[in-house]
Simulated scan of single mutants.
Amino acid sequence: MTDKNFEINDVVEMKKAHPCGENRWKIIRMGMDIRIKCQGCDHSVMLPRKEFSKKMKKVLEKGAQ
């Protein structure tokens, strides 16, 4: 399977696209919950870490450290 290691500012692809049609999300907060922001419409969503790990497909771009 693909690399499921993710960090803050990474751009990830989710299994389902956002209703706006975009499937690229940027991780903007990490903790017990992970907040991601849609790269198409800037809508943000907070998911529990376990749910995020299930729904994430792959890391598209690594964030600047």
Rank of each mutant, 00 (worst) to 15 (best):
M1T: 03
M1Y: 01
T2D: 06
T2S: 05
T2C: 00
T2L: 03
D3Q: 12
K4C: 05
K4D: 08
N5G: 11
N5R: 10
F6K: 04
F6Q: 02
N9S: 02
D10A: 00
V11W: 01
V11G: 01
V11A: 01
V12T: 03
V12Q: 02
E13N: 01
E13I: 06
M14F: 13
M14K: 11
M14S: 10
K15F: 08
K15M: 11
K15G: 10
K16N: 14
K16E: 15
K16A: 13
A17C: 15
A17P: 15
A17W: 09
H18D: 15
H18A: 14
H18Y: 14
H18G: 11
P19R: 11
C20K: 09
G21R: 11
G21V: 14
G21H: 15
E22H: 08
N23I: 13
N23F: 07
N23R: 12
N23D: 14
N23S: 13
R24S: 12
W25S: 06
W25T: 03
W25C: 05
K26L: 08
K26Q: 09
K26Y: 00
I27L: 03
I27S: 01
I28E: 08
R29T: 02
R29S: 10
M30P: 08
M30D: 05
M30R: 11
M30H: 03
M30E: 13
G31T: 06
G31V: 06
M32I: 10
D33H: 11
I34Y: 10
I34C: 09
I34N: 07
R35K: 14
R35L: 10
R35Q: 15
I36A: 10
I36D: 06
K37H: 00
K37C: 10
C38I: 10
Q39T: 11
G40A: 07
D42P: 00
D42A: 13
H43V: 14
H43R: 12
S44N: 12
S44E: 15
S44I: 04
S44P: 01
V45G: 01
V45L: 12
V45A: 08
M46A: 12
M46R: 11
L47F: 09
L47A: 07
L47Y: 06
P48Q: 11
R49S: 11
R49A: 12
R49E: 11
K50L: 14
K50T: 14
E51F: 09
E51L: 14
S53T: 06
K54E: 13
K54F: 08
K55M: 13
M56R: 04
M56V: 02
M56Q: 04
M56S: 05
M56N: 02
K57M: 07
K58S: 09
K58D: 06
V59Q: 00
V59C: 03
L60A: 04
E61N: 02
K62S: 02
G63Y: 03
A64Y: 00
A64M: 00
A64G: 02
A64L: 08
Q65H: 06
Q65I: 06
Q65G: 05
Q65C: 04
Q65D: 11
